[in-house]
C-alpha cells in the first residue's frame, strides 16, 4: 500500500489543500484523495508534489506491506 507524508509536509509549509493543488496544477479534491491514501498519484504528479514540498519523492511516498 502506498503511504505518503503529503499532509504532514503541507502543514509544515502552511499550505492549504487548494494552495498545494494550485502549485502542482490539480484540484483541492485530488490533494485530499492523495492525503487519505484513496488515490495513488502518477509519477509526474508525485514528482511535482515532491518538488513543491521540497523533498525527494522517496521521502514523500513509500510502500508499506499490507
Amino acid at each position: 500500500m502506498l503511504r505518503n507524508r503529503v499532509k504532514e509536509l503541507r502543514a509544515r509549509y502552511g499550505y492549504t489543500q487548494s494552495e498545494l493543488g494550485k502549485k502542482v496544477d490539480v484540484t483541492r479534491q485530488t490533494i485530499a484523495f492523495i492525503e487519505k491514501g484513496e488515490f495513488s498519484p502518477s509519477i509526474t504528479l508525485s514528482l511535482k508534489l515532491a518538488q513543491a514540498l521540497q523533498v525527494e519523492v522517496g521521502d514523500l511516498f513509500w510502500l508499506e506491506e499490507e
Binding site: 496544477d25 490539480v26 484540484t27 485530488t30 490533494i31 484523495f33 488515490f39 498519484p41
Partner: peptide, 9 residues
C-alpha cells in the same frame, strides 16, 4: 476529469 484524481473517482 479535470485532473488525474477526479478522473480516478
Amino acid at each position: 476529469e479535470q485532473d488525474e484524481g477526479m478522473t480516478f473517482i
